[in-house]
Design a protein around this nucleic acid. Structure first.
Lengths: 128, 128
DNA sequence: CCGTATCCACCTTGATACTG
DNA sequence: CAGTATCAAGGTGGATACGG
């Protein structure tokens, strides 16, 4: 089951769009995905709950992101046939497991953001 | 040193563009950043080395990505004043440390990509 | 060898209006 | 309540040509 690997640690197909890393990166890079997943980590939420919780998201983007998260198996969508409609979104085990690497990334970001901003300052103060 | 946290695990400011997580996410989400960092993990490379190694990258994007990586303190750029020009790129300690969370993400992606693709197939086969 | 400069096609996002 | 439809704006990346 050894995968083909270049001289670096990166699989060869990571230059193409269907590289697993690329696909996951593109997903979590979206403006709303991480916020939605994080909101659902504690439990099921309704559509309106999400839209209130995630400040600034438009109906279009919330729906669109939820739909693709559903398609990828990260959330389940449950429609209760009542009036008024009641639609609930819940993380799947896959969705919950995504929170792991995202948390690692967040930890790294918060640990190193000062260093990054210092570099930016130093760089702009000496443009050339 | 306690940071303000919402009822979820996500810092409150993660709804804004200057949230550390958002900034780092946007950086590594770029099409070329991960490939460049990975290429430089083993050591210094010249501009042309990078362009040959990273198949499909245009001069514009390679230069642009390297410049912003430099501005953020991830790589150093060394110009040797000779003819023909010799410019070398090297990862800083900060740049090398970024490889950690990225590797975690890659490992997760490769571990779960089958599950994701299975979900996609199941979803398209039952559109409604 | 190592870039810069321009132009352009695409894609993502957001605003707005409407509906079962 | 929980969406869909449509349109417009901005940003990202690529092709191409040229320069020190």
């Amino acid at each position: 089951m050894a995968t083909v690997v270049e001289s670096s640690g990166l699989p060869a197909d990571c230059y193409s769009a269907d590289c697993p890393t690329r696909q996951v990166l593109d997903r979590i890079a979206g403006k709303w995905t991480v916020l939605i997943v994080d909101s659902l980590l504690q439990g099921t939420l309704r559509y309106t709950d999400l839209s209130r919780r995630i400040e600034g998201v438009s109906q279009k983007m919330l729906t669109q992101t939820l739909r693709s998260l559903e398609a990828d198996g990260f959330v389940t969508r449950t429609v209760h046939p009542v009036v008024p409609p009641r639609v609930e979104y819940t993380l799947t085990p896959l969705g919950r497991s995504l929170a792991g690497p995202v948390a690692a990334l967040r930890a790294w970001a918060e640990e190193h953001i000062n260093e990054i901003e210092a570099a930016r300052t130093a760089h702009t103060r000496v443009p050339r």
